[in-house]
Design a protein around this nucleic acid. Structure first.
Lengths: 190, 190
DNA sequence: CCGTAATCAGACCATTCGGTCGGTTTAAGG
DNA sequence: CCTTAAACCGACCGAATGGTCTGATTACGG
C-alpha cells in the first residue's frame, strides 16, 4: 500500500514545491517569492527544484494551476451541503465568499497581479481562471432549484464584488463592511 | 520668473523620479520596479536618486504619496462640473470610476498589494489611503444637494465595487460588464 | 568673492538572483 | 544482475540588485 514508486516520489516533490510557492506568495508577496526561498521552504535541493521546474516562469505557471485546483477542491468540499436541498442564494454567496478569501485566494491574487506584466503567467492564468469560473458555476448549481441558482451574469457580478472585498480587506479588514456589502448584494436582487 | 533656484531643481528631480516610479509600476509591475530602472526611466544618475531617496523603501513611500496626490488632483479637476449644480448620484459614481481606473490607479494597486507584505510601505499606505478617502468624500459632496450626496458608508461600498471592477479588468477587460455593475449599483439604491 | 551646503555624478561593493552542469542515488525493466 | 532513465544533489556562474563612497558641480548667504 505504501506508495514508494518512482513517479510517485516525483509527484510528491512537485506538490511540496507548489505548496511552498503558495506559502511564499502569501507570506512574502510575489516580489519576494524567489527560487531559493521556495526551495528552502519546501525543504528541497536546488537540483530537485530545477529538475521539475526548469525556470521561474514554469514554477509560477505550475502554481497557477495548483491554486486553481485547490480552490475548486475547497469549494466542492463546502458545496456538499448544497446537495441536501438546503436552500437559497444566500448560502451560495457565503460559499463563494469563503473561497474568495483566505490564504488560497491571496496567493491567487498575487499571481493575478503579476500576470498583468508577465506574459507567460498571463497566458496561463487567463484560461485557467476561465475554466475555474466554469467549474465554480457548475459546483454552485443544483438541478431543479432554478429560483436559487445564479445566472452567469449574476456570478460575474458577484465575483467582482467579492474581489473588491478581498483586496480591500488586504489592508483594511472590516468584517462589518464585508457583511454589509454581501447583504446589500443579496437584497438588491430580491 | 524662471525658477532656477536650487531647491526648485531638487524638487523637479524628485518629481521626475516619482513619475518614473509610477511608470515602472504600471509598465513592469512592482517586482520589476528596481532602482536602476527608475533612474534610467527618469534620466537621472544613481547619485541623484540615492540623494533624494536613500533606500528603495523611501522611494516607494514617496510614490505612495505621489500617486495619492495625483489621484486627488485628477478627481478635483473632474469634479468642477459638480459645482455647477448639475445633478445626480450617477455622475458622482462615474467621476469616481474615472479615478479608480487608468494607469494612476494601476500604480496604486501595485503599491497596495506590495504593502501587504512590506511593513514600511504598509505604514505609509494605510493612513495615506484613509486621508485620500476623506478628501474624495469632500470633493464629491456638494453643499445642499443632500439627496444626491453619498454617505460615508455608501462611498465605502462603492469603492469596494470599483476596486473589484478594476482588478477584474486587469486581466479580463469587459466594458459591458463594467457598465452593468455600475448600473446595478445605482439601481439598487433607487 | 568665498565658504558651505545641497545637488548630482558614477565607480565600486557585497549579496542575491535565476540558471547551468557534472556527478550521485534511486527505482524500474529485461 | 545490469542497464537505463528519472530524480536529486550542490558547487558554480554571470548578471543584476540595493546600497556606499569619493568627488565634482551648482547655487546661495555672508
Amino acid at each position: 500500500m505504501s506508495e514508494h514508486t518512482g513517479q510517485e516520489r516525483g509527484r510528491r516533490t512537485r506538490e511540496r514545491l507548489l505548496e511552498a510557492t503558495l506559502t511564499c506568495l502569501v507570506e512574502h508577496g510575489f516580489a519576494a517569492t524567489t527560487m531559493q526561498r521556495v526551495q528552502s521552504t519546501a525543504g528541497v535541493s536546488r537540483g530537485a527544484l530545477v529538475h521539475h521546474y526548469a525556470s521561474m516562469d514554469e514554477l509560477l505557471v505550475g502554481a497557477v494551476h495548483h491554486v486553481a485546483k485547490r480552490q475548486l477542491e475547497a469549494l466542492r468540499r463546502a458545496a456538499t451541503s448544497l446537495e441536501e436541498g438546503s436552500t437559497g442564494r444566500a448560502q451560495r454567496v457565503r460559499l463563494l465568499h469563503s473561497v474568495m478569501s483566505g490564504p488560497l485566494f491571496l496567493a491567487g491574487l498575487e499571481l493575478w497581479m503579476a500576470a498583468r506584466t508577465n506574459p507567460s503567467l498571463h497566458d496561463a492564468l487567463v484560461p485557467a481562471e476561465r475554466e475555474l469560473g466554469r467549474q465554480i458555476a457548475e459546483a454552485l448549481t443544483v438541478e431543479g432549484a432554478d429560483r436559487a441558482n445564479l445566472t452567469h451574469l449574476e456570478l460575474d457580478e458577484l465575483l467582482i464584488t467579492l474581489r473588491g472585498l478581498a483586496i480591500t480587506s488586504v489592508l483594511r479588514p472590516d468584517p462589518r463592511l464585508e457583511r454589509l456589502a454581501i447583504e446589500r448584494w443579496l437584497g438588491a436582487r430580491g
